[in-house]
C-alpha cells in the first residue's frame, strides 16, 4: 500500500483522478456527479477513451491512454467504467502507467481475466478496489464511484462493505444517529478482487480520522474470517459487523458472483462466529447497524 495514500483513507481532496471509459454513458454520468461533489472539480483531471484523445468531455480533457493522461495531468487514481470484456485490460493499463489506486466499478468481469490481472499486479505498488463495487467516498472531500453523495456526513466512522446499496443503507442509518463517516469503501462482490476487508481494516486502524468501523460482509469466501483473525490481535478501535445472507439457501448464487455458500463453506453463521470471537459488536438485524454503532461508542 503506497504510504502517501493514507490520509483519511485511500482518497481525499488531494487525489487526482482519471476516469477510464469517460465517454461511455455510465462513465460520463457518474463522473459528472463526482465532479459536482466536494472537491471533485479540482480532483477529476482526465478521462481516457481510446481513439477520443484530444477531445473534451464535460470540461475534462480526454486522452487515448492512461499513460498519456498521467504524464499530462499527474493523475494518481483511476476509476474504471469500461465494459466487462475490456475492464481487466483497462486495469492492466492503469497498473502499467503507475497509477497508485484503481477503483473498478464494472460488474461482470470474467473470472479468468481477473486471475490474470491480479497475477500481473503481484509485487506492484498499485492498489485495486473492486471490480463490481460502488467505489470510495470521503465525505465532503471526494467521491469516486456511483454512490449517492448526499446521504453521507463527514465524521469518524469508517465503512467497509462488499455491497453497494447495503452500504448506502448503513450510511443512512449512521447519519440518522448523527454518526458521520471518515471514508466508505465498497470492495465489491466478486470472488477475485483487489483490497479485502482485512486490507481496508488495517488502513482504518491506522487512520487518525477514524474512530470506529462498520464491516459489512456477506456469504461466500473467507474474507470476513481472515479479517476477524487479524482483528482479534491487532484492532484497537470498536468494530460493528453485519453479515448478509443468513437466510440464503446453500448452493445458490445470490446476485453477486462471490455470494454463494458452497460445500458447506462461507456461511453467515461461520462468519458471524468469527467476528464475535474477534470482539466485534455484531448486528444480527440489518436495521440495527446504526444503533449498534451508537451503543458500541458509548461503552
Amino acid at each position: 500500500m503506497p504510504q502517501e495514500l493514507i490520509v483519511s483513507i485511500l482518497i481525499d481532496k488531494s487525489s487526482r483522478v482519471v476516469t477510464q471509459g469517460i465517454t461511455g454513458s455510465t462513465g460520463r454520468y457518474h463522473t459528472r456527479a463526482c465532479v459536482d461533489y466536494g472537491y471533485g472539480e479540482q480532483a477529476f483531471v482526465a478521462g481516457v477513451t481510446p481513439g477520443k484523445g484530444g477531445t473534451m468531455c464535460d470540461k475534462i480533457p480526454v486522452f487515448n491512454t492512461v499513460s498519456e493522461a498521467r504524464n499530462e495531468t499527474g493523475c494518481n487514481v483511476s476509476v474504471v467504467y469500461v465494459p466487462p470484456a475490456h475492464a481487466a485490460g483497462a486495469i492492466d493499463e492503469a497498473v502499467d502507467a503507475g497509477i497508485e489506486l484503481i477503483i473498478c466499478i464494472t460488474e461482470g468481469v470474467p473470472l479468468k481475466d481477473m486471475l490474470l490481472t491480479r497475477h500481473r499486479m503481484l509485487g506492484k505498488a498499485t492498489a485495486l478496489v473492486g471490480p463490481n463495487c460502488p467505489g470510495i467516498i470521503t465525505p465532503d472531500q471526494l467521491k469516486i464511484g456511483i454512490m449517492p453523495g448526499y446521504i453521507h456526513q463527514k465524521g469518524s466512522i469508517g465503512v467497509v462493505s462488499r455491497s453497494g446499496t447495503l452500504t448506502y443503507e448503513v450510511v443512512h442509518q449512521l447519519s440518522q444517529q448523527n454518526l458521520g463517516q471518515s471514508t466508505c469503501v465498497g470492495i465489491g462482490g466478486d470472488p477475485i478482487n483487489g483490497l479485502k476487508h482485512l486490507d481496508v481494516m488495517r488502513l482504518f486502524n491506522e487512520d487518525p480520522d477514524t474512530e470506529a468501523v462498520v464491516l459489512c460482509g456477506e456469504i461466500g469466501g473467507s474474507d470476513e474470517e481472515d479479517c476477524a483473525a487479524w482483528m482479534k490481535d491487532h484492532m484497537s478501535k470498536p468494530v460493528v459487523g453485519f453479515i448478509a445472507g443468513s437466510s440464503a439457501p446453500p448452493g445458490k448464487r445470490m446476485g453477486h458472483a462471490g455470494a454463494i455458500v458452497a460445500g458447506g463453506k462461507g456461511t453467515a453463521e461461520e462468519k458471524m462466529a468469527a467476528l464475535e470471537d474477534a470482539g466485534v459488536f455484531l448486528a444480527r438485524n440489518p436495521a440495527e447497524i446504526g444503533s449498534t454503532m451508537k451503543q458500541a461508542l458509548m461503552r
Binding site: 447495503l166 456469504i219 443468513s246 446476485g255 440489518p286
Partner: peptide, 16 residues
Amino acid sequence: VNGAGLAMATMDIITL
C-alpha cells in the same frame, strides 16, 4: 430490492 447485498439483508430481516 435494488442491489444484491440489500436484497439478502431484506430476506434476512423478514426471516428474523
